[in-house]
Design a protein around this nucleic acid. Structure first.
Length: 959
RNA sequence: GGGUUCGUGGUCUAGUUGGUUAUGACGCGGCCCUUACAAGGCCGAAAUCGGUGGUUCAAAUCCGCCCGAACCCA
C-alpha cells in the first residue's frame, strides 16, 4: 500500500463526533488543488454520508437506474481492466444518479468455484483432498475474505460510486439458497436432466468442466506412425486405386491379412482404449477395409473398421484409430456407430487395468513407455516431433480428457431461437457486439453441463434412491441444504418405496450461480405463502410463488461486461433469468474493451508490459485516470497512455484555476440572487442579460443537451471532448478573458455593495450559472475535483450533501444570435492573429477596428478582450478592391444535375474561363444558378490600417 | 481453418443517406510572463485516410482482392 494515501491529522473529513451526522468538509479555493489529499477526503466522506446508498422505497421502475455488475473473481489483485471497466460503469451510475431519482450500483465477489479453491491451495500450500469439504470451504472463505477486503479498499480508492451496503458473495447462504432455488425451478420446469454421457474432464482438478472453461495451449508432441495388423478386409480391394496409392502415399494400403495398417497418432497411450478404425468414404484405396477388422499392437484386441466422412484426409495416413476418448470426434463416432467403451484413463489421469502392464502409470509416462515398446517391436514406423495446440483447462493448464460420467445438464439447444430473440430485445453498446452473441448461440452444440466434482461450491439439493436411483429434490423451504449432512425430505422413495438414499456430492458450476446476479441483486426468493398469480415467472406449483424484494430493479437497465466473456457469461445469465422470470434480465448491455499497453499490445506478465492501477494511482489523480478511461469508444480496446492522464491532470488544474477566477470576479456572497445554485435561475431573479452573456448561456444549453445525449448513449469519449473543448476554449479562453475586462476592480466593488451596473450584474450571473453547470456536467467523469470546487463554491448555500446527489442541470432557455457570436469569435481570432503576426503582445492596445459583418451586440466584448479603443460594425461591403480568383462549386447539388459535365466545369475554372452574369455563372456553355457556386474573392485594401479576413466578416484594424 | 471487428499526420483519435478544403489531442517549431493557470496563451509545420483494383461526375466513406492486427469460435 502506498503510504501517500494516508491523510494529515487535521483532515477535515475526520468524523467530529460519535453519533454526529457526517458533515461535508468545507474546502476553499485557496492555493492549488491537491488531488491526493482531496480525493481521499471525499471518498471517505461519500462513504460516511451514504451518498451512494440506494433508496429502497422507490417503486417506479423508470425512476430507478439499476446496474447488474458482474462479480469479479477474487483470485488476484486489481488490474487495469477492473479500473477501466468499473470506471465506465461509474460514469453511467453517476450520470443517472443525477438525472434520475436514484441509482442502484451493487457489488459482488465471485468466491465460489475452482478459481478460489486453487487460490486457497496456492496461498496455504495445501491440497483440497486432504480436508473434509466443510474444512476446506472454511479455509477458502478465510483466504477469500482477505482478498475481498483488499479488493474493496482498492475499488473505494478509485472513487467508484458503489453502494457498499449492497454487496454479496456467491458463496453466502442467501446466494446458495437462490442458486438451489434456481436449480429446483428449472428441474420442475423440465429444463434440467441428469445423464451418463461423455463430458470434458480435467484430470488435475478431477472434475467435469464445460466447453467454455477450455482454452488452447501449444504443447510439444509427436506424430507416431504405428502399424496395426490387418486381420481381414471387408471386401475385395480396388487394385488400381491401391496401386496408385502405393506410389503416392508413405505406406501402401494393406490388402492381405497380416499386412501393416498404419495410423498416425499423437497419443499412443490410448492404444489400449482403441475401439475402432475409420476410413474416409472417398478413400478408394482403403475402401475394401471397411467391414473388416484390425489388431491393436501391444494389446492384441481386435477392432472393427468403419467408414465415416469425419476422417481428415489431409493429415496422417488416411486411417484413423478411434479411442475412448481422444478427442471430440471419438465421442461423435462412439455415439454414431454405437461403439464399445474401453476406459484406459481414470479420473486422475492414471492408466487403468485395461492398459495391462501400464496400469497405474500417468498418461505421460505410459506414452513414453509405449512409444519405446512399439519401437522395440519394430512397429513404430515414424516419430515426428511437432508443436500443436491442445485443449487445456484454463485454471490449471492441464490437457483435458473426455470421460463418461453421470452429470447434470441444463437443456438449451432446443430454445436457441428464443434466446436469440431475447438478445435482440436488448440494446447493445456497441451494437456490433450483438453479432458475436448471435454467432455464439448459433454455434452451440452441447447442452450446458452444470455439475462439478469439487469441494468448494454450492451443492446440488438432491439425493438419489439407493435402490432405483430416483432423484429426490429438497423442499424449497429448507434451502439452502447440504445433502451430505442433511436428510432428504422423504422417508421412502416415491418411485420404489426403498428407504435408503445417497447424497449428491457434486456442486454447481460457478457459472450456474454467476448467471443469477440480476436475481441476487433484485432479491429473488420463494415465498410459500404467496399467491401463485402474483409471482414472477411461470408458476410450477399450486402454492407459493417467486417474488422480488426490489421488483423496480428488474429488468436491470444495464449489464456491463468485458468483451472477452460476453458470450458465455451474458448468455447464461440471459438464459437462466429468462427461464425464471419470463423476461429478458437487461434493457441494455455495455461492453468494454481491453486495456493494452502504450504500443497497443496486450498486457501480459511474460512480456513484462503490465501497468498496475497501484502504479497509476501513485503517480496520477484518480480523476485523471477517469479522464483517460473516458477517452475511447465503448467496446474498443485502447492503449494506456500517460499522455492522456497528463492531459486529464491539466484539465483538473484548469478547472480549479478557472473556478478561482470566477470566484474573484463574481464572489458568491455578492453574486446576484438566483445564480448561486439555491434556485437555478428563476426568471424573476435573473438580471437583464447582455448579448455576450445570453450567448454564453445559449451555447452552454446546446452543449448541455448534446452532452446529456452522449452520456445516455455511453458515448463518453464524445461527451468528454465536447465538454472539455467548450469549457477550455469557449469559456476559459474566450468568455473569461472578456469577463475579466468587464468585471474589473471597480465593478466588483459595486457588485458587493449592490450598486453594480447592469452589465456587471449580467456578467456575474452568467459566470455563476455557467460555472455551476460545468461542475455538474463534469461530475460523472471527474467526481472528486468537481465536488471539491462545488462544495467550496456552493456547499454553504445548498441543502444537498453532495454534488453527486444534485439534479442534472436543465437548459437555461436563453436565446441568442449564435451566428453573430461565432462571427464575433472569429473576429477576435483574426485580431489575435494580427497581433501575433505583428509581433505585438496580446494585451497591446489597438486604436480602432471596423467590422464589416454581423456581430450584433458583441462590439463591446470584442473591444474589451482585444484592448481595442473603438470598435464599430458596419453593414455592407468593406471599402476594398476585390478580385475574383476562383469559384467554389457546390458539388452536392451540381452532381446529381450535371453528372459528368462537372469535369468540364472544373477544367474551365482552372483555365479561368468563366464569367459572372446577371443570370448566374456562365461556364462551359451552361449558366449555373447562384445557389450552386460561390465566387472566391481576394480583397486588397490600401486605406488606413490593415485588412483582416475573418469567417463571416471583414475587419479593418488600426494600430 | 471459420467468423467478427479494425487499419486516418510521429502517437492516439473524430469523421457512413459518397460531395472535392479530413477533426481534435499529445508531441514538434516559433512568439508572448496579458493582474486564474508558463503544467498557461497565441501562431505554425505535419496525413495523397494499410495496399491494390473497381463502381461513380465525385470514394477515408460503397464493392472485390491482398497485407497487417485484435478478439471470438473450431
Amino acid at each position: 500500500m502506498p503510504d501517500a494515501t494516508q491523510t494529515d491529522t487535521d483532515d477535515p473529513a475526520e468524523p467530529t463526533g460519535d453519533d454526529a451526522e457526517p458533515t461535508a468538509p468545507q474546502p476553499t479555493l485557496e492555493g492549488e488543488y491537491d488531488p491526493r489529499e482531496a480525493e481521499q477526503r471525499w471518498q471517505e466522506y461519500w462513504l460516511e454520508a451514504g451518498v451512494y446508498s440506494y433508496d429502497d422505497e422507490i417503486e417506479n421502475p423508470d425512476t430507478a437506474y439499476s446496474i447488474d455488475t458482474p462479480p469479479p473473481t477474487v483470485s488476484g489483485s486489481l488490474h487495469m481492466g477492473h479500473l477501466y471497466g468499473s470506471t465506465l460503469q461509474d460514469f453511467a451510475a453517476r450520470f443517472h444518479r443525477m438525472s434520475r431519482e436514484d441509482t442502484f450500483f451493487p457489488f459482488g465477489y465471485d468466491d465460489n468455484g475452482i478459481a478460489s479453491e486453487r487460490l486457497t491451495e496456492r496461498e496455504l500450500d495445501i491440497r483440497h483432498q486432504d480436508y473434509s469439504r466443510r474444512e476446506f470451504q472454511e479455509k477458502c472463505r478465510e483466504v477469500c475474505q482477505e482478498y475481498e477486503a483488499e479488493f474493496t479498499e482498492k475499488m473505494q480508492g478509485l472513487g467508484m460510486s458503489i453502494d457498499w451496503d449492497r454487496t454479496y458473495k456467491t458463496i453466502e447462504p442467501r446466494v446458495q439458497r437462490i442458486s438451489q432455488l434456481s436449480f429446483l425451478d428449472l428441474y420442475e420446469q423440465g429444463r434440467e436432466y441428469r445423464k451418463k454421457a461423455p463430458a470434458i474432464w480435467c484430470p488435475d482438478c478431477e472434475t467435469a468442466i464445460s466447453q467454455v472453461e477450455m482454452e488452447d495451449a501449444d504443447r510439444d508432441s509427436a506424430f507416431n506412425d504405428v502399424a496395426f495388423e490387418l486381420v481381414e478386409a471387408g471386401s475385395e480391394p480396388d487394385a488400381e486405386a491401391v496401386a496408385s496409392a502405393t506410389e503416392e502415399r508413405p505406406y501402401a494400403p494393406p490388402t492381405e491379412p497380416g499386412d501393416d495398417l498404419v495410423i498416425s497418432t499423437t497419443r499412443p497411450e490410448l492404444l489400449p482404449a482403441c475401439v475402432a478404425m475409420f476410413v474416409h468414404p472417398d478413400d478408394d484405396a482403403n475402401a475394401h477395409l471397411v467391414g473388416g477388422t484390425a489388431k491393436v499392437p501391444l494389446f492384441d484386441h481386435e477392432v472393427p473398421i468403419y467408414e465415416d466422412d469425419r476422417v481428415d484426409l489431409d493429415t496422417g495416413t488416411g486411417l484413423v484409430m478411434c479411442c475412448t476418448f481422444g478427442d471430440q470426434t471419438d465421442i461423435e463416432w462412439y455415439q454414431a456407430h454405437d461403439l464399445d467403451l474401453r476406459v484406459a484413463i481414470d479420473a486422475s489421469g492414471t492408466m487403468t487395468d485395461i492398459a495391462g502392464e501400464y496400469e497405474g502409470q500417468s498418461t505421460e509416462a505410459a506414452r513414453e513407455q509405449i512409444i519405446e515398446a512399439l519401437d522395440d517391436a519394430g512397429i513404430l514406423l515414424d516419430h515426428d516431433p511437432i508443436t500443436h495446440a491442445v485443449q487445456v483447462h484454463e485454471r490449471c493448464e492441464v490437457p483435458v480428457e473426455y470421460r463418461v460420467s453421470k452429470q447434470w445438464y441444463v437443456e438449451i439447444l432446443d430454445r436457441k431461437e428464443e434466446y436469440l430473440a431475447a438478445g435482440r430485445e436488448m440494446d447493445w453498446y456497441p451494437e456490433k457486439m450483438f453479432t458475436r452473441y448471435e454467432h455464439w448461440i448459433e454455434g452451440l452444440e452441447w447442452d450446458w453441463l452444470i455439475s462439478r466434482q469439487r469441494d468448494s461450491g454450492i451443492p446440488f439439493p438432491v439425493w438419489y434412491c439407493a435402490d432405483c436411483d430416483e432423484p429426490i429434490v429438497a423442499d424449497r423451504e429448507d434451502l439452502p441444504v447440504e445433502p451430505i449432512e442433511d436428510e432428504p425430505p422423504v422417508d421412502a422413495c416415491p418411485a420404489c418405496g426403498h428407504e435408503d438414499f445417497e447424497a449428491e456430492e457434486d456442486v454447481f458450476d460457478t457459472w450456474a450461480t454467476s448467471s443469477l446476479t440480476p436475481l441476487i441483486n433484485a432479491g429473488w426468493d420463494w415465498d410459500a405463502a404467496a399467491d401463485p398469480e402474483t409471482g414472477i415467472g411461470p408458476a410450477t406449483l399450486d402454492q407459493g410463488a417467486f417474488t422480488l424484494d426490489n421488483p423496480e430493479l428488474y429488468p436491470f437497465d444495464v449489464r456491463p461486461q468485458g468483451h472477452d466473456i460476453i458470450s458465455f457469461w451474458l448468455f447464461h445469465t440471459v438464459v437462466k433469468c429468462y427461464e425464471h422470470t419470463g423476461e429478458v434480465p437487461f434493457e441494455s448491455v455495455l461492453i468494454n474493451g481491453h486495456v493494452l499497453d502504450e504500443n497497443r499490445e496486450k498486457m501480459s506478465k511474460s512480456k513484462g508490459n503490465v501497468v498496475t492501477p497501484e502504479e497509476v494511482m501513485d503517480e496520477f489523480p484518480v480523476d485523471a485516470a477517469r479522464f483517460w478511461a473516458a477517452g475511447t469508444a465503448v467496446g474498443d480496446d485502447f492503449p494506456f497512455k500517460e499522455g492522456d492522464l497528463e492531459a486529464g491532470e491539466r484539465l483538473l488544474r484548469k478547472l480549479w484555476n478557472a473556478s478561482k477566477l470566477v470566484d474573484q470576479l463574481a464572489p458568491i456572497d455578492s453574486a446576484p440572487p438566483g445564480s448561486d445554485g439555491t434556485d437555478s435561475g428563476s426568471a424573476a431573479e435573473q438580471p437583464d442579460l447582455e448579448p455576450i452573456d445570453e450567448w454564453l448561456l445559449a451555447r452552454q444549453d446546446a452543449v448541455l443537451e448534446s452532452v446529456t445525449e452522449k452520456f445516455a448513449d455511453h458515448e463518453y469519449a464524445k461527451a468528454r471532448t465536447e465538454l472539455r473543448t467548450f469549457f477550455w476554449e469557449t469559456f476559459c479562453d474566450d468568455y473569461l478573458e472578456i469577463a475579466k475586462q468587464r468585471l474589473d476592480d471597480v465593478e466588483r466593488g459595486a457588485l458587493s455593495d449592490g450598486t453594480a451596473n447592469p452589465a456587471a450584474s449580467s456578467a456575474a450571473y452568467a459566470l455563476r450559472t455557467a460555472h455551476r453547470n460545468f461542475c455538474l456536467l463534469f461530475a460523472p467523469i471527474l467526481p472528486h475535483v468537481t465536488e471539491e470546487i462545488w462544495q467550496a463554491s456552493y456547499g454553504q448555500t445548498t441543502a444537498t450533501d453532495s454534488l453527486h446527489t444534485t439534479d442534472w442541470p436543465s437548459p437555461t432557455g436563453q436565446t441568442a444570435d449564435l451566428d453573430a457570436g461565432e462571427t464575433a469569435l472569429s473576429v477576435i481570432s483574426a485580431l489575435r492573429g494580427y497581433k501575433t503576426d505583428s509581433g505585438l503582445p496580446l494585451n497591446a492596445d489597438l486604436s480602432a477596428a471596423t467590422i464589416y459583418g454581423d456581430v450584433a451586440g458583441f462590439e463591446g466584448a470584442i473591444g474589451d478582450v482585444m484592448h481595442v479603443g473603438s470598435v464599430t460594425s458596419k453593414d455592407g461591403e468593406a471599402p476594398t478592391t476585390t478580385e475574383i480568383v476562383g469559384v467554389n462549386l457546390d458539388y452536392a447539388t451540381l452532381g446529381p444535375e450535371f453528372g459528368e459535365q462537372i469535369g468540364e466545369f472544373d477544367a474551365a475554372i482552372d483555365a479561368g474561363e468563366y464569367e459572372e452574369t446577371d443570370d448566374g455563372l456562365a461556364i462551359a456553355g451552361e449558366t449555373l444558378d447562384p445557389d450552386h457556386y460561390e465566387l472566391v474573392r481576394e480583397q486588397t485594401y490600401d486605406g488606413e490600417g490593415e485588412l483582416l479576413e475573418a469567417d463571416g466578416a471583414t475587419v479593418i484594424v488600426e494600430a
